[in-house]
Design a protein around this nucleic acid. Structure first.
Lengths: 206, 206
DNA sequence: GTCATCATGTAAGCCGTTACATGATTGC
DNA sequence: GCAATCATGTAACGGCTTACATGATGAC
């Protein structure tokens, strides 16, 4: 989880820990919680030792990396202004990290590897899935879809068994059903949007 | 979390660890994961030391406790049949737990105490909220509702900021919005159903 | 000069998991 | 007799949090 978040973000732009934390929290969004320094900094050191990221010189002009279309421009600006003014002092207290080629490969692995995935991780995978080619991306979506239909089946199985659950359990199960159905519809939208013609349609009408 | 699950279940019926695990998994439902023995048994011992549960003699005829209307009857039967046949041998290898009055008080605390609550815990609280009076139950629902509207506000705030997020992040955010809205609608249904007249209406038309 | 914020880290602990060890009972 | 399941536990480890320690920079 944490590795995916870090690699995905430093691939987009060189960052230091403190800023990284903010970005992760923002990326995960409200309800999926944040990330504490106590886990972030050790993770960064670990990734550095593993050669997935490397410390780079704090760059006054961070490279404009490829969000699809100059997105995050406001934040890039904010990041720039927050840099120490050029002549303030020689030493930098911040440690800015960039991704290595090993790190890029690892990022793709983290996005691709199968096995059951929790909500947070899947959300991050979606956010960074533009790093994959369409085939791999569709695999990601379809694997998730299969997982959800399995849950749906299990839910239905449970429902057939005990008919006389009490009020609140019944209500919870109904809501579970709703939630999974909603998630499936979202996935189907994501999958449908991968059809090339759909994609260009969408770009025509924003 | 684990304490809530254990106390809630043993309050309904005296149970041993192995069976308890199954019930918890079933209660949480697919997608919210299960509970390993490695955490369950230590938790039971801890709760026993704390006087929240006590080991009782394995009872061939478990007391019919108050699900609203003889629910879970099938499972009670299953539990009964799985008991060692009366004359098989004197010793029992299973340790059956029942709740104590201290445990009952603690259960209400766990259902009532404020502070941010994760999905699993809230689900369990809903399942066991029939242990609370209507006032406390409504407080539970309203606290959750407030939490969700906060998230909604934060989501809206984020959306106003960066207009040019890329495709997949935008899609994720839209889905987050959908999900929270759906959760809120569910809560509103739960809250509405607590109106006395609504409740009796519902009992008339099942 | 002092207070908030930025910035990096370590240490202790919580809560859970997997893997292992052990043995009784049941079904065939 | 043997395998599957029932049943209880321990040990090691994982991943994350909180709390603590430290210090630079900027705003007023």
């Amino acid at each position: 989880m944490i590795d995916l978040a870090i690699l995905g973000l430093v691939k987009e732009q060189e960052l230091h820990g403190y800023e990284l934390r903010k970005r992760v929290a923002e990326l995960l969004g409200p309800g999926r919680g944040g990330l504490s320094f106590g886990s972030l900094y050790p993770a960064l050191n670990r990734l550095e030792r593993a050669g997935h990221v490397k410390a780079v010189e704090a760059n006054t002009r961070p490279p404009l990396t490829a969000w699809s279309s100059g997105s995050l421009a406001g934040e890039l600006a904010a990041f720039r202004t927050r840099l120490p003014r050029p002549g303030s002092r020689g030493g930098r207290s911040r440690k800015v990290y960039g991704i290595t080629s090993r790190g890029e490969a690892h990022l793709v692995e983290l996005l691709t590897e199968p096995g059951p995935t929790d909500e947070r991780t899947f959300a991050l995978r979606v956010v960074f899935c533009h790093r994959l080619n369409r085939t791999k991306r569709l695999e990601l979506f379809h694997r998730r879809r299969a997982e959800l239909t399995d849950r749906l089946a299990e839910l239905a199985k449970q429902g057939r068994g005990q008919t006389t659950q009490h009020r609140y359990l019944r209500s919870l199960r109904e809501h579970d059903l709703e939630t999974i159905t909603c998630d499936l519809a979202w996935l189907d939208r994501l999958i449908a949007d991968e059809r090339p013609q759909a994609r260009s349609e969408q770009e025509k009408n924003p």
